[in-house]
Design a protein around this nucleic acid. Sequence first.
DNA 1: GTTCAGACTGTAACCGCTCACAGAAAAGCC
DNA 2: GGCTTTTCTGTGAGCGGTTACAGTCTGAAC
Lengths: 333, 333
Amino acid sequence: MSNRQPTLDEVAERAGVSRGTVSRVINDRHHVSAKARLAVQSAIAELGYVPSMAARSLASQRRGAVVLAISSDDPALFANLFFAEVIAGVNAVIEETDLQLLLVLAASERGRSRLARILQSRGADGVMLLALRENDPLAKVAEAGGVPVVHGGRPLDGTPRWYVDADNRGGARQAVEHLVATGRSRIATVTGPQDLNAGVSRYLGYREAMALAGLSDHRVAHADFTEAGGAAATSRLLDEHPDLDAVFVASDAMAAGALGVLRERGRTVPGDVAVVGFNDVRAAQHTRPALTTVRQPIIALGREMTRMLVRLIDGEEPTPLILPTELVVREST
Amino acid sequence: MSNRQPTLDEVAERAGVSRGTVSRVINDRHHVSAKARLAVQSAIAELGYVPSMAARSLASQRRGAVVLAISSDDPALFANLFFAEVIAGVNAVIEETDLQLLLVLAASERGRSRLARILQSRGADGVMLLALRENDPLAKVAEAGGVPVVHGGRPLDGTPRWYVDADNRGGARQAVEHLVATGRSRIATVTGPQDLNAGVSRYLGYREAMALAGLSDHRVAHADFTEAGGAAATSRLLDEHPDLDAVFVASDAMAAGALGVLRERGRTVPGDVAVVGFNDVRAAQHTRPALTTVRQPIIALGREMTRMLVRLIDGEEPTPLILPTELVVREST
DNA sequence: GTTCAGACTGTAACCGCTCACAGAAAAGCC
DNA sequence: GGCTTTTCTGTGAGCGGTTACAGTCTGAAC
C-alpha cells in the first residue's frame, strides 16, 4: 500500500523536462517558460508528487522547521492555559507558511540537551523561547544554535535582540489608575515572582502609577502567581495594612485566592476592597464577584513571535514588539 | 560563529577509520572492534560531532519524528487544559527517545492538508491523533499516510487498530455506584455530546450502573460539555423530574453549571441533591461545594499513546489500552 | 600447514533534492 | 543575416549520511 512516493525525476520524465526545471517550478523560481511550467504542474498533479523534506533540506541546508521551546517540563506547570494559547497563536502563523512546528519542553538538563542536539543537527531554522526565568540556561543553548532566536517575554537579565512582550508595566499602571479613578487611595499589590520579568514589570507599573497619583506604595506582598500564594500574600497584607481599600493582584490565579481570603476576613468586594487581576484567563469571569482584570493578548503573543521569526529566517531585520494590554472592568472594582 | 558542523567523514579521518565504521559506531551496530569504537567515540567528542538529521533520514528512509495532530485549530478550543496535559505526557516519553515532536493543529481543511503533506513527504514516522468527532476526516488523512496511527480516545465510528482511551464507561459506572452507595436512588444524568465517544460511553456507564442497581434511568438531559449547556440541562432536569436526589454530570465544566442552577433553584448540595462530575480538572476543587468527580488520567493518556506509537515504529504489535479512572470524593456527595 | 568460519573493515552505490554552470534557444539590435 | 543579450534548459557535482557487498584478518579445527 505504502507505494513509494514519486520522485522529482519521475515528474521530470513525465513532463518531458529535466530535473532542474522541475526543481525551479517547485520553488517558484524565474527562468521557466510558461509551457514547461504547465507541463510540470500537471505532471505533479497527476503523480501526486510531494517533495521529500529530507532530501530537500539536505541539499538546501535549511530545515523547513522551527522549534518552540518552553522552559518547563513539569506537566503541572506546562498544563497551563497560557502555553496553550501561545501555541494556538504560533500555529495560526505556521499554517500560512510551509514550516513545521517542533515542540520542545525543556526545563531540565535533558530537555535542554535535546534542544541543543536539534539545533546542532541543523534540525531547525529558528527558535522561539518561552517563559524564561532569570539566568535560564535555555537561552544560552538557543543562542548557541546559530539560528535566529525570538523570545516570548523579555528575560529578566539582559534584553535579547528579538522579542515580543506584553506591556506588563503599562497594563499594571492602567489597572492602578483605574483604581485611583474610582476613588481608591490605600492601594496594595500582590506581586508575582521577582525573578520573572512579568512579576517585576507589573510591580514597577504599580509603583509608577502610585507615584504619579501621589500615593504611597508601601503596601506590598510578594507571591508566586499561584492561587495559594495569592491567598497567603493577601492574608499578610490584611494583617499589616488593615486599612487598605484596594489591591492590584499581578495574576488572576492569585486574585482568585485573594477574593477567597477577603471574603473569609469579612471584607466585601468591591464595597470594602476593590480587586484587579492580570491576564484575563477564562476563569476570571467565573469568580464571584467577576474579576476586573488586565487582558493580555496571549494568542497575539504567539502569533507575533512567529511572524518575527519567519521574517528573521527570510533575512529581514524586525524590531522588538510590545503588545498593548487592555483593562477589562467587571464587578470587583 | 556558525562554523560548519563537522561531518561523518571528518570524524572518520580523525579516528583513522572509514566512514562505514563511524556509522556503525553511531548506530550502535555489531562488528566493531573495541579499539575502533573507542577511537571513533573520542573523535566524536573532540569534534563535537552531531549527525545531520536530514542526511540520516534521507539515507535511512526514516524521519526521526512523530506528529501529534489535534483536531482543533480554533484557539478557543485548543486552549484547553486537556490538550496541555496530553502534550505534557507525550513529551515525557518523547524525551526518552531521540524522536522529535511535530505539533499539528488540524481541524480545518488547511490543517488537514498540512498533515497530509507532512506524511506524504515522509516527514514523520508515526502519528498520534486527538479529539476526533464522528466522521472526522482527519482520521482518513492520517490513515492514508502509510505510517502507524495511534488514536487518543476511540472515535465513535469504528474502532481503530491502535488506541489509548480512558475508561469512560467504567468511570461513569463508578460514579453512579457511589451515589447509590450513599443512599441516592432518583439519580439523573447530564450527558455530553452524543457524537463524541466520551459522551456516549459515560451515558452508557450511567445506564449500566442504574440497571445493576435496579433503578430507573429515565432522568436524562443531553448537553455539550460546556458550563452553560450543563446549566440549561440541569434546569430542564429539575423541571421534568423535580424529585431527583442526585445527578451524574458527564464533565466538570457542566457540573459547575449544574451547581449554579441547583443553588438558584434552592436545592442544597449535597443535602437535597448530590452531584458528581467527570474529569477532575483543577477547577473542580474550587467549586462550592468542592466537586466529587471522576479523575481521568490525562497525562497518562499522552504518555501511553506515545509509548504505543514508539512500539509500533519499532515493529512491535501493541494492543489497545484502556486506562482506569478514579473516583475522587469531595463535598458534593 | 591448510582450510574455513566468523568478526571486522572499507568501498561505493544510492537516498532525492538544490544549485552553479554551461549550452541552447529566443529576442533584440544594427 | 550576423552578433550580442537575455531567457530558458540540461547537466553533474554535491549535501551527509546508510547499507549491501566484498575483502581482510583472526584463531580454531583438522
